[in-house]
Simulated assay, not measured.
Amino acid sequence: METKQCADTILMIRPVNFRYNEETAVNNYYQRVIDNLHPQDAQQRAQQEFDELVKQLRERQVNVIVIDDTAAPDTPDSIFPNNWISFHDDGRVGLYPMYAHNRRLERRDEILATLENRYHLKISGIEDFSFHEEENKFLEGTGSMILDRPNRLVYAALSLRTNQEVLGEFCKKFGYEPVTFKAYQTVEGQRMPIYHTNVMMCVADEFAIICDASIDDAKEKKEVLSSLKKTGKEIIPIEEAQKYHFAGNMLQVTSITGQKYLVMSSAAYSVLRAEQKDAIEKHCPIIHSSLDTIEALGGGSARCMMAEVFLPVQHKN
């Protein structure tokens, strides 16, 4: 069976208590407080932005499985499921160690039960890396890892949330080769590690969007770009200023008719130059939707909200 890069089914978690998460803000420099915004209003706005993105995806016949979050336990970042779970075409599921204590509560067994019982998807096994939390070693799913599924490569910017040892275990279990590097952003005049790889790069089927300016080491930068070129990707570079508006946080998805789309926020779309949009649209149309509240308070964008579901469908006996 040919391994696909783009999923035609997406899992999204509809928030019930979305707000600024102090636990993640210590090293997610994309989060910011919105002055005079009541928590209830933050939740309401986030829910509206979530619903609008789901609507846009469904209008283009992308299969979206929406599961409501629960009021308890308190999980302000549950809208970003791609950090704690990944789904693979052999039926396996990956569960990941999370840096923030309140994000660990997002791992819910009943979500897997719903996928099996209601959506008739086949789960053949679970690879659970979450025990590494006890050792303070983290690997936050497809936030930490950009998977090139057909070429069995995983691009990973090492950081407090992307541990090399746990990454090695993932690669061994799932049969990937790691391409590791350090990526940075300037915070108050200092170069600080980027917390998630998926804010600075996106790998689609025929192209890759990357903020290579964030890779300070010339050798590492060359290795990453050379790996992308070797696998036939057209490289579409973005600048650091564009990355701050989540122009790297994108995901290519497929509709049930086979049409591919690149999904991003309207903030990301607005900072792309005409030639960058043209380069993307040569490969596939763009879907963009306003995620201003989610981006500001959550420090994540469109890609973080979508967990790709590659699980096989259960065969009826």
Results as ranks from 00 to 15, higher is better:
1 M>W: 12
5 Q>K: 06
9 T>N: 04
9 T>S: 06
10 I>Q: 03
14 R>H: 12
20 Y>W: 04
23 E>V: 00
30 Y>N: 07
34 I>Q: 05
36 N>W: 09
36 N>H: 12
37 L>W: 04
37 L>D: 05
40 Q>R: 15
43 Q>W: 04
43 Q>L: 12
44 Q>M: 11
45 R>T: 01
45 R>Q: 13
45 R>H: 11
47 Q>D: 11
48 Q>E: 15
52 E>F: 07
54 V>M: 01
57 L>S: 03
59 E>Q: 13
65 I>F: 06
66 V>C: 08
67 I>K: 09
67 I>H: 03
67 I>A: 00
69 D>T: 05
73 P>Q: 02
75 T>V: 15
77 D>L: 04
80 F>P: 00
81 P>E: 05
84 W>Y: 14
91 G>D: 15
92 R>S: 05
97 P>A: 13
97 P>D: 09
98 M>Y: 12
100 A>H: 10
101 H>V: 11
101 H>L: 04
104 R>C: 07
107 R>P: 07
108 R>D: 12
111 I>Y: 15
113 A>Y: 14
114 T>R: 14
114 T>A: 12
122 K>D: 15
123 I>F: 04
124 S>P: 03
126 I>R: 14
126 I>C: 11
131 F>E: 09
138 F>N: 01
139 L>Y: 12
140 E>N: 01
140 E>I: 02
142 T>C: 10
142 T>V: 02
144 S>E: 04
145 M>A: 00
146 I>M: 08
149 R>V: 07
149 R>S: 00
150 P>G: 12
151 N>L: 09
152 R>D: 07
155 Y>N: 06
158 L>K: 12
160 L>C: 11
160 L>Y: 13
163 N>Y: 00
168 G>H: 07
169 E>R: 08
169 E>N: 14
169 E>K: 11
170 F>K: 03
172 K>Y: 09
176 Y>K: 02
183 A>M: 09
185 Q>P: 03
186 T>R: 10
188 E>V: 14
189 G>L: 10
194 I>N: 01
194 I>Y: 05
198 N>Y: 04
200 M>Q: 06
200 M>K: 02
201 M>E: 08
204 A>R: 02
212 D>R: 06
212 D>C: 10
212 D>V: 04
216 D>A: 08
217 D>C: 15
219 K>P: 11
220 E>V: 08
221 K>R: 12
223 E>D: 15
226 S>T: 14
227 S>V: 06
230 K>Q: 12
230 K>S: 11
230 K>H: 13
231 T>Q: 12
233 K>R: 14
236 I>W: 01
238 I>Y: 08
247 A>R: 00
250 M>Y: 10
251 L>Q: 06
253 V>P: 02
254 T>C: 06
255 S>L: 06
256 I>S: 13
256 I>A: 07
265 S>A: 10
265 S>C: 08
267 A>S: 14
268 A>G: 15
269 Y>H: 15
269 Y>M: 12
269 Y>G: 05
269 Y>S: 08
280 I>S: 08
285 P>F: 05
286 I>R: 03
288 H>G: 02
289 S>E: 13
295 E>I: 00
295 E>H: 02
296 A>H: 05
296 A>Y: 07
298 G>D: 02
299 G>H: 01
301 S>R: 02
303 R>H: 07
303 R>D: 05
308 E>P: 14
309 V>I: 13
311 L>I: 14
311 L>A: 11
312 P>Q: 11
314 Q>A: 15
315 H>S: 13
317 N>G: 11
